[in-house]
Design a protein around this nucleic acid. Structure first.
Lengths: 346, 346
DNA sequence: CTGAAAGCGCTTACAG
DNA sequence: CTGAAAGCGCTTACAG
């Protein structure tokens, strides 16, 4: 930044023949300024193209109006969609977003992260990383001593932290119940990597829904993928081998479901004729798969927006001296999208 | 921020019985400090959990080490993948990223954007929005008066601006030439929305490649989609009507290609038997489509990283007083991925 | 090797 | 309605 050319409040004041003080009042819309003075100062500001420094302002006001959003896996549909909601809501509420993107899902160095958060003097932290087992509890613990509020985007509610959640368990139930409603009883599952809280919760939804109708799923009835279409194809082959009676399958995301369908076609099997399938996520391609894929949709955008809303509430509470109003998890619901892949042929 | 509890350099200095000055030397690894003094100060720092304020530091050093990245369409594969590369490289080079996400592809208020950029005192701007016609030239013009370097992520090179580009024209040629190499001569095109520079450049690649072999594509030979699978399906129907001789088709992105294939299947037509297809983007689903989709892959991550590298070079040049070394566009290449959908049956 | 003074660009009381 | 003084939390010369 070419320091010599930078317009400061000092230069504006001199040019307008007033004190810095008065210029400050004008740029902050303070009422106690004579109309003529205000007009003259404003003219100088416009003419010089003066923009007050947020840095200096942050220092004096002891407020940065900044939030750091910690992300991972921006190439995934979930995190990037949530980030979209987060950023729009932050802007709306007048906060600047610092993006801290982790190279993978694991935090190698909490000390360094904490150092960053504190040094930047952000007012809050939005944790928009997929929940990985063990990892999440560790994050909550290690980050609990932060001097500012932190909110997690989670797979399931947590008692001692601020969390906004999409109801993965409920979504898993919804998907499985739909297959049950279609008349299927032999229902398999391809889960996501179970380190992911999302994957675990969806699987539990599948398991509990089957228990309710008197089935008791065992390890013969499900297998694990890694979210990718390739893993879905492989998982399907495995499952077909160990669970030959399977009539229908709940796959924990659409990409794996699409891979599985592809594999079925390769084997000369029909969907839903030979095997009914429902996925999860409602990615754009699902409606145009052959056959169109039934799925569970979740409003990532709303989740992002809600995350910031709750965080900003907590920030305000803290700044006004009140303790935050307890840790109430926000849980967002999912929707069942029925397409051809899960419809029972009669 | 609970002002009373904040640890400042003053408190550390008092606790250690030295001047602020000396504390400053310690936290900045300045050599001229006695070992004993350094050790004592460091102990106090660790014990108090002191972290120097980046805000205050920015003000005195007149450097924020911040870059703003302007994005749009984070739900799209391109921008979100590029952002991933951008953020990792920025972190590596020691810059903090401010995320300014536009609600759509159009900038409503440049004044407000410029105000933001200047007030935040960022050192550079990375423009990671898809290039929309007219819009791009307007952006370059309106933003040319910024006091800091700005780099655009573009569809094609530009003379008077810093641009990092993926060679969309070349990619369009690559895709079309592949179909030609397969022996097809009647090659149609489904373009993206032509306001997008990417869509326009890919279409030109298709057009020029056909001209080279003596064909002269007209409006009968192509139609326009909106990047979505749904639009791809619709576009295919239209094209089938007006271009019945079509043997092969280059679709400007994979999602539309997948939609088109779905529509073909609905019509009882085979891919590639009745119509060969190649897409663009190499999204994860493409390998698992039925049939697997040939496509053009581009390294978004590398593009993001390169964007920051070039920007930081420009920042350094400016700060060291040199003029930036001219506007040389960086052009990244694409790769042809051949799968079943484009292979000619013989 | 260490510290007192001044300054970065603002805002916040406090006078008048 | 307006301005002089002090302060936010650091760093940068300058002495010693």
């Amino acid at each position: 930044m070419n320091t010599e050319n930078r317009i400061t409040i000092r230069k504006v004041a001199d040019a307008a023949g007033v004190s810095k003080q008065t210029v400050s009042r004008v740029i902050n819309d303070h009422p106690d300024v004579a109309d003529r003075t205000r007009k003259r100062v404003q003219e100088v500001i416009d003419q010089l193209g003066y923009h007050p420094s947020a840095v200096a302002r942050s220092l004096t006001k002891q407020r940065t109006r900044m939030i750091v959003v910690v992300t991972a896996g921006l190439n995934l549909i979930g995190p990037s969609s949530v980030l979209n909601g987060v950023s729009l809501k932050a802007e709306e509420l007048g906060y600047t977003l610092l993006l801290k993107n982790l190279p993978d899902f694991y935090v190698r160095d909490y000390q360094e992260l904490i150092r960053y958060i504190i040094e930047m003097r952000v007012e809050g932290v939005a944790w928009v990383c997929p929940e990985i087992d063990h990892n999440r509890r560790e994050s909550i613990e290690k980050l609990s001593k932060l001097p500012v509020p932190i909110i997690f985007q989670g797979s399931s509610p947590i008692k001692d932290a601020l969390v906004v959640t999409i109801d993965n368990y409920g979504g898993g139930c919804l998907a499985t119940q739909h297959l049950i409603d279609q008349g299927f009883r032999e229902i398999g599952h391809i889960s996501g990597p179970l380190e992911f809280g999302d994957a675990e919760a969806r699987k539990e939804g599948w398991f509990d829904s089957l228990q309710k109708i008197g089935s008791s799923p065992t390890d013969m009835h499900w297998t694990e993928g890694d979210w990718s279409a390739a893993s879905g194809a492989k998982a399907l082959s495995d499952l077909l081998d160990k669970y030959p009676d399977m009539e229908a399958i709940f796959v924990a995301n659409d990409q794996m479901a699409i891979g599985a369908i592809q594999r079925l076609h390769d084997c000369g099997l029909q969907v839903p004729g030979d095997l009914a399938i429902i996925g999860y996520d409602n990615i754009p391609e699902s409606a145009y798969n052959s056959p169109p894929l039934s799925t569970i949709s979740q409003d990532f955008h709303a989740m992002g927006a809600k995350t910031i809303e709750v965080l900003v509430d907590a920030i305000k509470a803290q700044q006004s001296g009140k303790e935050p109003p307890g840790f109430e998890s926000v849980i967002l619901n999912t929707d069942l999208i029925i397409r051809k892949s899960s419809i029972r042929n009669r």
